[in-house]
Design a protein around this nucleic acid. Structure first.
Lengths: 256, 256
DNA sequence: CCAGAACTCTGTACGGCGTACGAGGAAATG
DNA sequence: CATTTCCTCGTACGCCGTACAGAGTTCTGG
């Protein structure tokens, strides 16, 4: 049973990465014409990641897909890590839908839902731990858009930043749950329910795992498991959490 | 610039893993006496992960640390993935502090803070994507303890589950930010501030990245960056988010 | 008491990974 | 046309997880 890989961001010299992100033209070219563009590489890598997860994005596989030798990719991209930075910013470029103008609560809800959907379109986004986010145009625009949802709300800058962070964190956490369930179901061929049915008898054979030792956990766990099939459970967590968070923020705003 | 690895959970046949987690004795031993125990392996692996991150937990390094050939580890543990399951459950065993009895709000706050500290003691915990959590005794006990914080609160099972999930998700999200900042500072030798100072001039040289294009982002980002040095920023997010979430839950409870 | 079963330990090897290095060839410059 | 500049790629190194088979150790059944 091999595991997957999440990847880190922001490690190397930021210079070249930033230039790549913003597509600076560079000095006039002298040598032979490039077969590819940076965009080709990023888009191919994204397609691989969408289909098979971030661990499928290897230099060898991307190169293969592009009909090119692995080392040729290093002409376009400094390395594997930077490629993933580029993929991340590229994906953030999909967040362009207009926000509703019916108030900050609707707008923030739309931000959360757009992000929820983005993560489900590109599940590998949540395998990246964005230590320092890539300083690319789309990531900037994403933050700008999120803040614009709170236009006119009477909070100071620190609070605005914290509110946006709170909502994003909520989406990431719950979407991670949702996506993990989907991915595990696909890779193991077992739904969450089937997996439980298989695990339960093993647990039942272990005296220490008796429900009496974990009364609350077994009561709540059973109820939660029965109420929604596990696939929809994370979505319920998302809706529930968003409602609580927005309520909490409303309270803060009204206290002004 | 090499990146790190987050790892997946719950992939293989659950049977053997569950037995390992609960320490079932197994049939009477016939062969030579084992040099090690499963606990030795798990603890050594944990020590490595604490020091150098999850990517330092390779079968070769763990074996080396134990003075044993790599393949010997497979006597104790089915594979690398299962070892990480065991590490996860083992770490959850550190969450045993008594919860305050002064009300659910205090209790839930303690749960959040304990978890915050656990993640900072063992940053690698957040590199694991717990698709399906390992069904080990300590993970069960953790969930049980979290639910016990809400004893006596008038919510149904689904709501209890969702509230606990919400708080845990908040801690995970904000702790991830905190830990990533620490880790990046350590590995790059740059504090967040220094890293920004280095990146800023590069960005300044890019016309499209002008502040005028991202008015809100540049205003809020600058303010947030100045108010707290970036290292404490995540902790502020944590406190702020927890307050909002608890307010939101309070509203729900009072609506009863 | 002893043959054989059961178990631990290990060396070797395979196929994967990122990427350093250097050679070869193509295009633009002078 | 010589030279510089750049793209492309084959090879190789050092990692990784782990399959497999052999060697050695301990316990069991007869």
């Amino acid at each position: 049973m091999t595991r997957m890989s999440t990847e880190y961001t922001g490690g190397g010299d930021p210079r070249r990465t930033i230039e790549l992100l913003w597509g600076v033209p560079g000095p006039p070219r002298r040598g032979p014409k490039p077969k590819l563009t940076v965009a080709d590489v990023v888009e191919t890598a994204t397609r691989l990641a969408d289909a098979d997860g971030l661990e499928a994005v290897t230099m060898r596989r991307v190169a293969d897909e592009l009909g090119v030798a692995p080392m040729s990719l290093y002409t376009y991209v400094p390395g594997h890590a930077e490629l993933i930075d580029l993929m991340l910013d590229h994906a953030h470029g999909e967040l362009t839908a207009e926000l509703p103008t019916t108030g900050w609560r609707d707008a923030l809800t739309a931000v959360a839902e757009d992000l929820w959907r983005l993560y489900h379109r590109h599940p590998w986004l949540l395998q990246i731990t964005t230590g320092r986010p890539p300083l690319g145009p789309n990531t900037f625009a994403k933050y700008e858009r999120e803040l614009s949802a709170l236009d006119g709300v009477d909070l100071d800058e620190l609070e605005l930043d914290a509110v946006v962070g709170l909502v994003i964190g909520l989406v990431q956490g719950t979407a991670r749950g949702s996506i993990d369930a989907i991915r595990l179901a696909r890779r193991s061929g077992l739904t969450d329910a089937e997996w439980w049915e298989r695990s339960a008898p093993v647990l039942a054979g272990i005296p220490a795992a008796d429900a009496a030792n974990f009364p609350r956990a077994s009561r709540v766990g059973t109820a939660a498991g029965q109420a929604h099939d596990a696939a929809s459970n994370p979505e319920h967590h998302f809706r529930f959490g968003l409602a609580r968070v927005l309520d909490g923020v409303t309270l803060l705003v009204e206290r002004r």
